[in-house]
Simulated scan of single mutants.
Amino acid sequence: MTDDSSTDRHARPGQSAPGRPMCLSDHGQLIAAIPHLLGFYPTDSIVLILVRDNLVFLTQRIDLPTSTLRDEQLAAQVANDVRHHADVDAIAFLVGDDAGGNGRGGRHQFAVHLWGAFARHGRVVDVYGVPRIAEGARWFDYGFPERTGTVPDPENSPMHAAAVARGLVTYADRDALAATLRPDPDDVLKRREALMDALAAHPCSADPGTMQAETEQSFQLVRRQVEQVPDRTGPLTDQDIAELSIALADLWVRDRCLGFALGEHAPAAERLWTELTRQSPAPERAEPATLLAISAYLRGDGTLAALALDRAEAAHPHHRLASMVRGAMDLGMPPATIRGIAERAVGDQHDTSREAVHHRPSE
């Protein structure tokens, strides 16, 4: 979006709870659902919710601008991001406004900019304010300040129950979610890097048959680790991490692993990619981080996807696949588009020649 804001898109879209449509007239319940749609409790944020047929279609969070000089620009960008989504109702919540929507101070002027930006695209947006997302917090309608109410307990909301049933965690804030991907200490990463250098010291074969066999062996190593995730009780060993990092540095192995996001092993694979995003040294960290981003985006968790891409790009700037996924997210492409990328990547492996990469990704 803007240089001084972060954006989270497609955060856990779909039904507000399995088989249960969202009641649009109960704005308190909708506000209480926001942390569980995003995966964390937002502060000082614009939360835009698109609803189709009374089901949450898309949730987007953006940092509120720190200067009123950016209000009009940001409002235009918000409206532009959603103008291609047809047959949806748009509802914006400005989280962090205590002014009560009385038109004097607070974020009322930003609401005016939002109305104008949506109108230029022939669209309508309802804008509400709330100081924080917590039980008893009072929300208000910027267009009709007399329309107000209180937020019920988010931890007792239907969306919270749905998130728990799906094994999803709602974090206290975005930083707490980001901490789940924080790399291990430098000395630990250097120890693993040295082990990887030792394991990869053998010369690579130039024989196509041998190269293909080595690639298949590397992929099967990753597959075994994915399959062991549900029953594994301890952490990965340094040897495990080194071997997996080397395996995923073969881009054909990495691309084949995209298939895990499309099947029954998706939860287990995502857990493994999360571990390796923390535990692998750079630049190899970019591979599991990108796999994690794709997996998260496919199931609608745009916040985790964006954070994983941050890790991938920090570990390996200009990483080709990470840049492709980032571009798709920035354009607001639906998860189905990313699914198509994953399906093509898996299918193309059988139709093109490759250059084996055994250490240090070349993307």
Rank of each mutant, 00 (worst) to 15 (best):
R9W: 10
H10T: 01
Q15E: 14
G19M: 15
P21M: 08
P35Y: 13
G39P: 04
G39V: 06
V47H: 00
R52F: 07
E72C: 10
A75G: 03
A76N: 08
A92I: 01
V95F: 13
D97Q: 11
G122D: 12
R132C: 10
F144C: 10
R147L: 13
T150H: 07
A161L: 07
A161C: 12
T170K: 03
D175A: 09
D186K: 14
D186L: 14
D187H: 15
A194R: 15
A194V: 07
A200C: 01
S205P: 11
A206Y: 09
V226G: 04
V229I: 07
T233D: 14
Q239H: 06
D240Q: 08
A242R: 12
I246K: 04
L251A: 14
C257H: 04
G263I: 04
T274W: 07
Q279L: 15
E287S: 07
L291I: 14
L292E: 02
S295C: 13
A296V: 09
Y297S: 05
A315G: 07
R320I: 12
S323D: 12
V325L: 08
G327A: 09
P335E: 13
T337H: 15
G340I: 03
R344W: 08
R344I: 10
A345V: 10
Q349Y: 08
R360C: 08
